[in-house]
Design a protein around this nucleic acid. Sequence first.
DNA 1: CACGATACCTGTAAGC
DNA 2: TGCTTACAGGTATCGT
Length: 270
Amino acid sequence: MPELPEVETTVRGLATVLEGQVIARVQVNRPDLRRPFPPGLVQALTGARVTGLSRRAKYGLIHVDRGQTMVFHLGMSGRWRIDPDGIGKHDHLVIETGKGQVLALNDARRFGSVDLLDTDALDVWPQFAALGPEPLGPGLTPAHLAAAFEGRFAAIKLLLLDQRVVAGLGNIYVCEALHRAAIHPERKAGKVSLAALGRLVPEVRAVLEEAILAGGSTLRDYVRPDGELGYFAKDWRVYGREGEACGCGRPVERIAQGGRSTFFCGHCQK
DNA sequence: CACGATACCTGTAAGC
DNA sequence: TGCTTACAGGTATCGT
């Protein structure tokens, strides 16, 4: 489910419910996700007022008025449910606002995480300090990629998934961006021309921005009537389309890289 | 250090 | 129907 656009959509949806509200109740239903829930999480959040929400890479941030921020990562299967019809299986963290609205962090595989940090120390949090530039920010340039890829022999697809190179890309949007930029996913990163990187950067931005827009329109202001967040119609050009015709007519191919599926067109991508 | 493999955990879909 | 297998949008860690 969650790459950068889905996290962004989720954060915007959560903001409609949480922004400016007091957190009246916090319930933790198991000790951990990928890591233990932070000690004191319930106490820190209960009674606090949410001052704002934001996103960094694939992390969602909920800022409260006590100088702290709850940082969540959705892993592979995480999602927030708004006003769910009862607390269900895998609703590991439940938050209720002063207005009585309920938010449930649901994560079947529990690859996600929740952390509690001082807001003014977010930048030096090791997980954030290690991240590369935001793909939608000014830091992602062809020159940045060229520098990051210099001398590297790993496949470009794999390096684009490395959050230290660019922060927020995942398997779907890397496949899509490489296809749109006509770059073969197995090309050694250090050997991709600056011209090709010049095509790639705007395509990375475009796939992400289009996905965020689709999320907004599909979800109607980022929240579906059933309370689900982050899901929207997918119209990928290659992802999940093995054997189907690429725009050029040739079948989309599927290979494994780093143990994960890569979809591409061997005719369009060189 | 760069890089590939593996582990984490559960659900779902496909194959037999 | 039931059982087994492959695979899933992410990341940390381990060995070479």
